[in-house]
Design a protein around this nucleic acid. Sequence first.
DNA 1: CTGAAAGCGCTTACAG
DNA 2: CTGAAAGCGCTTACAG
Lengths: 347, 347
Amino acid sequence: MAVRLSDIAASLGVSEATVSLALSGNGRVAESTRQRVVAAANELGYRPNTAARALRTDATRTIGLIVSDVANPFFGELAREVERHAGELGYAVMLCNSDEDASRQDDYLLDLLAGSRVDGVLLVPASSATPGLRAAGASKAKLVIVDRPITVPGRGDAAKHLRALPTVRSDTSTALAEAAALLVTLGHRRIGVVAPPQDTPLGRVRTREIRDALVEAGVSPRSILVEAGDFRENSGYRATSALLEQRHRPTAIIAADGPMAIGALKAARDAGLRVPLDLSLMSFDDAPWLELLDPPMTAIAQPIPQIAGAAVDALIALIKGSPQHDPPAQQPVCTFVRRASCGMPPA
Amino acid sequence: MAVRLSDIAASLGVSEATVSLALSGNGRVAESTRQRVVAAANELGYRPNTAARALRTDATRTIGLIVSDVANPFFGELAREVERHAGELGYAVMLCNSDEDASRQDDYLLDLLAGSRVDGVLLVPASSATPGLRAAGASKAKLVIVDRPITVPGRGDAAKHLRALPTVRSDTSTALAEAAALLVTLGHRRIGVVAPPQDTPLGRVRTREIRDALVEAGVSPRSILVEAGDFRENSGYRATSALLEQRHRPTAIIAADGPMAIGALKAARDAGLRVPLDLSLMSFDDAPWLELLDPPMTAIAQPIPQIAGAAVDALIALIKGSPQHDPPAQQPVCTFVRRASCGMPPA
DNA sequence: CTGAAAGCGCTTACAG
DNA sequence: CTGAAAGCGCTTACAG
């Protein structure tokens, strides 16, 4: 068994309370005693039992991170940055993977929160308006919504709490404006969007952001063709194939995440189209290998470290019950990375 | 606050013990009582307090997963599969990222294990023979070594325990034999290896595996050029550049992981070499985008779901104290995926 | 079949 | 400055 407080106390002939106080630095303990205790603790390799401490203090110093797909490199990197930032602040991270499944998301939410497994949760919602999310709202859970918006119906206390939750999302506006301007300048007039599911808040929001940017740049709303996927590569393939089968097919396609962009590129190839000669392509989420693709993929890059930092900070502020209206952190801004996958439309 | 056992007991007019027994299914409780308890628990949304249960039973039903780099897609996918498999067996996963840093690895090991935060740990060692690993050995920690071997010096009890730890690694032999045969058939005689650090067990083991396969296929040992990296993209770039600067440079290069392969391809391009016309390239670890690279990258694909499954199974067997000598799970086997990045050497 | 009681390892008022 | 004691929410022998 591991070393306990009582082992140190016994070895030194002092009380457990004194050891605890000495180690925590909270109590008034004689400096000489403190030093003896610290020395003994190091000597014995003492580590406080997490469960006992959590039970006593009702704080686990752990946060949960529920992402929709860890195997998506975007979330891999997000997990890394969350873990790093939380670690610096003394918090461990419990990683959960909802797999874009509402009921898995709910299971995790309930298990983490109601089971007091963590002090708070960073949620990349696979689905909003689920029973688990409502329950979390009803229990005033410490929750921060990351990367995707949620919409919460109803007007009970739970709904109000959920709507007031901090949300950390990157600002796509300038990057999308650049992207749209580039496509229009190159001559594109019919543009396809491989979008997130349209029955999710992110699907509607992101589709609108893209549509607004394109219209602002001069594209006719009727020439914007939206085909929804489900964030996965296969759905990107299918959505792109559908777009390319239309009578007036688009000359450029924007994919809403990395996996769907991979699918889009595969679909373009399988349709016998050369990118960018026959079709221009761009994607959300940058990655080190995008510049090595054939052709190098243009991307709207999200500032993952900043998103992670802001999310962790917001959650820990919530956990610590900091003043409710601290100045909202500046919203992390996406950048536009132009590469060869965008060219002029075919004649 | 969350719902407690005592809330259910009070609402039903029975004892906490009865509620606990009814919910766990361990005790002899009247069926009618059991049903009332279960109904009340669902009604109230009861979830047992994890800390209390862990403190009492000395089991957290959580395992730790320490990887060396979550942002490497290989480990992202490993994390997903571990999490999925563990979840099916009723275990949560705590993800930690050592960032290839021995002291971070040790911090996590100690925190997770000595702090009783988890029941056992799946470790992708960033470094072996560290103090933390020795301490884990001394405390007879439930530990499974994944993806990389460790070498443990000394002959104390701790060392013995560490050496007896289950290790789950994929079998590269047939895939490497195919890879080597292909290169030789194509005509390559000088082959570069962008290897893991040579002061790590994996570095030595993997380099030997590759060397053996090449020699077996007919390559002269003196024509195998090894340049070590550190698993990261930049090091792959540097190592490749170094290989390409040699007087008799290799006509083919094998990179030991995905990020280093990305770096290798970038280095080849920056050196003005066309792949595969001037240089053939292959990599460990497959990914969905490798077939979209320019050129599509040949890969030795690791069976990640099987590795994760075997690792989780081994750890849980250890935790449950199953018979020591259950038949060792069959070692997961790598497959060779030939793509266009390998061609004939330049004339 | 059910309840009373002890105890897991901590932390924290409360005395002294 | 230090110690004795209570209690966090569970589980599990032990009685009855």
